[in-house]
Design a protein around this nucleic acid. Structure first.
Length: 771
DNA sequence: ACGTCGATCATTTTT
DNA sequence: TGATCGACGT
C-alpha cells in the first residue's frame, strides 16, 4: 500500500507525509509538483482521512481533472470521486448553489461571464446618463474587478479617499456610482460574475457563523495549488476555512506568479510563513523536466528579479542542446521558420506533432503561426481565443435556458426577446426596462403584466405569446431533464430550424455548433455521478448552466490529440513539451508595452518569460521579428531586453532551421546583426513603433443633396405617378411608379442625380414639388 | 422594425 | 487587421 512513496525523492516524500499543520511547498518548475499533490491526497486517504473531508483548489479545471484521475489511479478505488477538487470558482459556485438563499440570491443564480458583465456595465452607465465612450465597459469592468478581488465593496469603494483620488486622476469620478449600480443590478438579476463567486463565498463565511462552522469542519484538510496566483479574496477565504484545523497546505512557486493583472498578489506566498504559528517549508528544487541548458537560462533570467524565495533548480540530466535564437524579417517569416523547423525536427528526430508547442505573449500572434502551419499541412490546435460557449449562436441558445431557470436574468432576456424576430423591437424593450427600473421590479415582471403598462395592441400580443412560451418551458423544469428541455426550446422557438435553413458555410457551422451543444447537454445528464466534486450528482438544467460558464477553451479541447499546440504563455502554465517555440521576443510585445512602467510589472513579464522557458523539456527555440503587423499597420520592433539577460554562451544564434529554401526569406542575415548587437548593445529603454501606413480618409459617396430651406414632408397619400418630388438625401426626382399595400406603400422614383430608387413612404420623407 | 454599411477603435495576459 | 456600433436606407 505504501508503494506510492517509492518513486519520490526525499523532499517530495517529506512533502507528502507531513500531513498535519500548515505547510508550504515551494515547488520549482518541473519539480514534480502535481505528483506530490496527488500522492499527498492519496496518502491522506490511505491513512484514514475521509475523501469528503479533503478540499483541493486549483486554477484550472484541467489541473483538477488530472489530479482527480491520478489519485483514482493510485488508490485503485472510486473513492476519489468524493473529493472536493476543483477551481476556486467552480467549488465556490457549487457551495453557493446550496447556500445562496442566505445571501438573498436564488439558488439557481446565473453566473455572468465577462461579456455579460460588460454588457450590464454598459447598461448601468447609460442609465446613469454617463458617456459610454468615456466610461468604457472594458475599463470599468477591470476597475470593478480589481476592487472585488481586493474585497473592496461598492460602499467602501465610494468612501475610500485613495480610490477617489485615483478615479479623479483618471477623470472617471463616477466609478463609485457605476460600481454601486452594477452590483445592484447583478443582484436584481439574480446573477454573480466571476469575482462574485469569491466575494459571496467570503461573505457567506464571514456573515453566517453556522456556515463557517459547517465548512470548516467539512474541510479538515485543505490543499491549494498555484498559491502564488491567489488574490486577497481567495486568501481570506482560505484563512477562514483553514482556521479550525490549520491543515492548510499551499503549493506554489513565486517565480511563476503571472496573474497580478487579475488581482493575484505574490505577497500571499511570500508571507505565508507569517500567517500561522508553525509553518513548515519544503522546497522542491530538483527538476525532472528540462535539460541543464534550459534550466540554466531560466535560472539566470529569474535572477534579475528582486525579492525571491531563494532556490536554484538543478537536474542530473545530460546538458542537451543550446537554446536557438532566431531572428526573422517579419512575423510571417517567423511563422514560416517555425513550421519549417517543426518539419525538420519531425524528420530528423522523429518527433510527433503533439510534442511541439508554440507559445506567445498575446493571442493575436497566433495568426502567422496558424497560416504557416496550415500551408505546411501540420495539424495544430489553438487554445485560447473565444471558447465554444462564447459563440453567438451558443450564447443565444443558452440565454433561453438561462431565462427559463432564472427569469430575473435581464441579460438573457434582452438577448433573446426578439430572437428569432418576433416583433418586439428596441422601443418596446427600452420601455419595458424603464417601467422595470421605475417600479423596482424585473423586466420579466413587466412583461408578465404587460397589459397594464400600455403597450400597443400588436406589441402586447407579441409579448404575451413570448411570455406564455417561456412559462411553458419553465413548467418543464420539474419533470423533464436538461436535454429534453433544451431540445424542446430549440424546436419550439424555431431558431434551430432557422439556422438549419441557412446554407452558407458559416450557417452550416452554426447549426453544427448548436447540435454539439445539445450533445454536450446530453453527455452532461448521462455521465454517471458527477465529475465536479463530491455529493450526489445534480443533473438539473441549472447545474449544467453554472458549470459551463466556468469552462474555458482549454477545457474543451483534447490536449492529447496528435497536433501542434498553440497557446499563450499564461495558458501554458503547468504544461510541458519536448520542443517549445517562443515567438515575438520583441520590446513592446514581450515584455508587453503595457507592462514596462514599473519594476513590478517588468518583473512579472520576466516571470512569464521564465514560465515560457521552463515549459521545454528538450529543445527550446526563441524567435523574434524585425517587423510585425499590428492593428493593420507595419511596426518595427527592437529585440526584447530579455535576450540580453540570457547567458550568451548558451545561445545559438546561427541556427537557420529548415533547409536552404529558407535562406531567401530574409531571416538568414539575422545572426550578423545579432553579433553587432552583442558588442554594442542598444540602449534598452528605446522602443520604436513606426507606422508605415499613413491613415488616409477616402470619401467616395454618391451625390449628396442639401434639402431646400422650405422643405416640409408631404402626406404620402397625396403622391401620384408623374409628380415631381424632393427627397432629403437624394434631391429632386420624378415618381415613376406607386406600388405596395395600403399600409406599406412603396414609390419608385427616378432622381435627377442619383438614379432610380425604391422608397418606402412610411419612413422616407418626400416633399411634393409640383403635380 | 430591421439590415447594411462605413466609421471607429482597440489588443496583454483569464477564472 | 478584425470586431463593434451608430447612422441611415429601405
Amino acid at each position: 500500500m505504501q508503494d506510492y512513496l517509492k518513486g519520490l525523492n526525499d523532499n517530495q516524500r517529506q512533502a507528502v507525509t507531513t500531513t498535519e499543520g500548515p505547510l508550504m511547498i515551494v515547488a520549482g518548475a518541473g519539480s514534480g509538483k502535481t505528483k506530490v499533490l496527488t500522492t499527498r491526497i492519496a496518502h491522506l486517504m490511505a491513512n484514514g482521512v475521509d475523501a469528503f473531508n479533503i478540499l483541493a483548489l486549483t486554477f484550472t479545471n484541467k489541473a483538477a481533472a488530472e489530479m482527480k484521475e491520478r489519485i483514482g489511479h493510485i488508490l485503485g478505488t472510486g473513492e476519489a470521486r468524493n473529493l472536493y477538487i476543483g477551481t476556486f470558482h467552480s467549488v465556490f459556485a457549487r457551495i453557493l448553489r446550496g447556500e445562496a438563499h442566505r445571501l438573498g440570491y436564488p439558488n439557481s443564480f446565473t453566473i455572468y461571464d465577462t461579456d455579460d458583465a460588460k454588457s450590464v456595465i454598459k447598461t448601468v452607465v447609460q442609465e446613469l446618463n454617463l458617456d459610454v465612450q468615456h466610461y468604457k465597459p472594458n475599463a470599468c469592468y477591470n476597475r470593478i474587478s480589481s476592487a472585488k478581488n481586493a474585497l473592496v465593496g461598492p460602499a467602501e469603494y465610494a468612501n475610500d479617499y485613495h480610490i477617489q483620488q485615483e478615479d479623479m486622476r483618471a477623470n472617471r469620478p463616477m466609478m463609485g456610482q457605476i460600481y454601486m449600480a452594477y452590483a445592484k443590478r447583478c443582484f436584481k438579476n439574480g446573477a454573480m460574475d466571476f469575482d462574485d463567486l469569491l466575494i459571496k463565498m467570503y461573505e457567506l463565511l464571514k456573515s453566517f457563523p453556522e456556515a463557517l462552522h459547517k465548512y470548516q469542519h467539512k474541510f479538515k484538510y485543505i490543499l491549494i495549488d498555484e498559491y502564488q496566483d491567489t488574490n486577497p479574496a481567495q486568501y481570506e477565504i482560505i484563512k477562514l476555512l483553514g482556521a479550525a484545523h490549520e491543515n492548510v497546505c499551499v503549493v506554489g512557486d513565486d517565480a511563476q506568479s503571472i496573474y497580478s493583472f487579475r488581482g493575484a498578489t505574490i505577497q500571499n506566498i511570500l508571507q505565508f510563513q507569517n500567517d500561522y504559528d508553525d509553518v513548515k517549508v519544503i522546497k522542491l528544487e530538483q527538476n525532472y523536466r528540462s535539460t541543464p541548458n534550459i534550466l540554466n537560462v531560466a535560472n539566470e533570467i529569474i535572477k534579475n528579479n528582486k525579492g525571491q524565495i531563494p532556490k536554484t533548480l538543478f537536474t542530473d540530466q545530460p546538458s542537451g542542446d543550446n537554446i536557438k535564437l532566431v531572428r526573422t524579417q517579419s512575423d510571417n517569416d517567423e511563422g514560416k521558420f517555425v513550421s519549417d523547423s517543426i518539419m525538420e525536427q519531425k524528420l530528423r528526430n522523429h518527433y510527433t506533432n503533439k510534442e511541439f508547442a508554440i507559445l506567445y505573449r498575446t493571442n493575436a500572434q497566433s495568426r502567422s503561426f496558424e497560416e504557416s502551419l496550415r500551408r505546411a499541412n501540420i495539424p495544430y490546435t489553438i487554445f485560447g481565443g473565444i471558447s465554444f460557449y462564447q459563440r453567438k449562436e451558443i450564447k443565444d441558445y443558452i440565454a433561453y435556458l438561462r431565462l427559463i431557470v432564472n427569469p430575473q436574468d435581464e441579460e438573457a432576456l434582452k438577448r433573446i426577446i426578439n430572437y428569432p424576430v418576433r416583433g418586439i423591437g428596441k422601443t418596446t424593450i427600452d420601455k419595458a426596462i424603464l417601467y422595470a427600473n421605475d417600479q423596482s421590479i424585473s423586466m420579466w415582471q413587466v412583461l408578465e403584466s404587460a397589459a397594464y403598462h400600455g403597450f400597443k395592441a400588436g406589441t402586447l400580443q407579441a409579448i404575451d405569446e413570448f411570455v406564455t412560451m417561456i412559462k411553458s418551458f419553465h413548467s418543464m423544469l420539474g419533470n423533464k431533464n436538461a436535454y429534453d428541455i433544451a431540445f424542446h426550446v430549440g424546436k419550439q422557438t424555431g431558431f434551430v430550424k432557422e439556422l438549419f435553413n441557412d446554407k452558407s458555410t458559416e450557417g452550416v457551422q452554426r447549426y453544427e455548433n448548436v447540435q454539439e451543444l445539445l450533445n454536450s447537454i446530453k453527455e452532461f445528464i448521462e455521465t454517471p455521478s458527477n465529475e465536479e466534486s463530491g455529493e450526489v450528482g445534480d443533473k438539473s438544467l441549472s447545474a449544467y448552466l453554472q458549470q459551463i460558464t466556468l469552462l474555458t477553451d482549454s477545457d474543451q479541447k483534447d490536449p492529447n490529440a496528435d497536433t501542434v499546440k498553440l497557446m499563450t504563455i499564461h495558458a501554458a502554465k503547468g504544461l510541458e513539451y519536448p520542443v517549445v517555440y517562443v515567438g515575438g521576443l520583441e520590446e513592446g510585445l514581450f515584455p508587453s508595452g503595457m507592462s514596462i512602467n514599473t519594476r513590478e510589472e517588468l518583473e512579472e513579464e520576466r516571470r512569464l518569460f521564465y514560465v515560457a522557458i521552463t515549459r521545454a523539456k528538450k529543445k527550446l527555440f526563441l524567435t523574434y521579428a524585425n517587423t510585425r503587423y499590428k492593428f493593420g499597420s507595419l511596426t518595427q520592433n527592437e529585440p526584447s531586453r530579455f535576450i540580453d539577460e540570457m547567458p550568451q554562451d548558451l545561445l545559438d544564434r546561427s541556427y537557420a532551421g529548415g533547409g536552404l529554401k529558407n535562406q531567401s526569406s530574409g531571416w538568414g542575415s539575422g545572426s550578423a546583426f545579432d553579433r553587432m548587437r552583442k558588442t554594442a548593445p542598444e540602449p534598452k529603454t528605446e522602443r520604436t513603433f513606426v507606422s508605415a501606413v499613413a491613415a488616409g480618409a477616402v470619401k467616395g459617396k454618391e451625390v449628396t443633396h442639401t434639402p431646400s430651406a422650405n422643405f416640409v414632408p408631404s402626406d404620402p397619400a397625396q403622391l401620384q405617378e408623374g409628380m415631381r418630388v424632393e427627397h432629403q438625401k437624394f434631391g429632386f426626382g420624378a415618381v415613376v411608379k406607386l406600388e405596395g399595400s395600403a399600409h406599406n406603400p412603396v414609390a419608385t422614383i427616378k432622381f435627377d442625380q442619383n438614379g432610380e430608387k425604391k422608397i418606402m413612404l412610411n419612413y422616407a420623407k418626400l416633399m411634393i414639388v409640383n403635380a
